[in-house]
Amino acid sequence: MPKKILLDSKKIDLILNRLVCELVENHKDFNNTVLIGLQPRGTYLIEKILDIFKKKYPNINIKSGILDFTFFRDDFRRSEKTLKASSTQINFSIENKNVVLIDDVLFTGRSIKAAMSSIDSYGRPNSIELLVLIDRRYKREIPIQANYCGAKIDTFKGDKVNVVWNENSKKDVIYIENNG
């Protein structure tokens, strides 16, 4: 199946702005809220979101970090491949904080489950919310859903949803392809 474009840069930009508005509505001044991008792909999305905050809400000071949850995954030793970790950058306690986890695509939900276990290493948060750009509906293997969702899509088995971020944001694109 050829690549089918789901969202072009214009739509992505609109969605991201809407998601930021929703966050501001719920978290107001972000005094007690932290944004955490999930490795590997959520790190690009959180950068985009922080950029929008800087431009549209320069007075809001946001604490943010990057979380790798490799060592909390439930598929260790389940394949020939060694699970490869990425870096974590959280230089603050999340005790009693409202945490917003940020990832690009919500699929089986297993990554989010691992991320929620992993975030506990930094304290007991007051609440955890989830923001995703794409929600692949009906593909969940555990009961997890997003609080903030850019777009919901229906996919078939074997479909791969690719979010491509470019240095020039006018070339950002999300497409779907099926390899079999």
């Binding site: 790798d68 490799t70 060592f71 909390f72 260790f76 030793r77 970790a85 990425s86 870096s87 974590t88 306690s93 276990s117 992993s118 506990d120 290493s121 930094y122 304290g123």
Partner: peptide, 22 residues
């Protein structure tokens, strides 16, 4: 490379991961 990640983990407030629970 792997030890760098574990060094970060052992400096967290909670220094434990469940990877080898089995």
């Amino acid at each position: 490379k792997t030890a760098l990640h574990f060094k970060e983990i052992i400096n967290r407030p909670i220094k434990k991961v469940p990877t080898l629970r089995d």
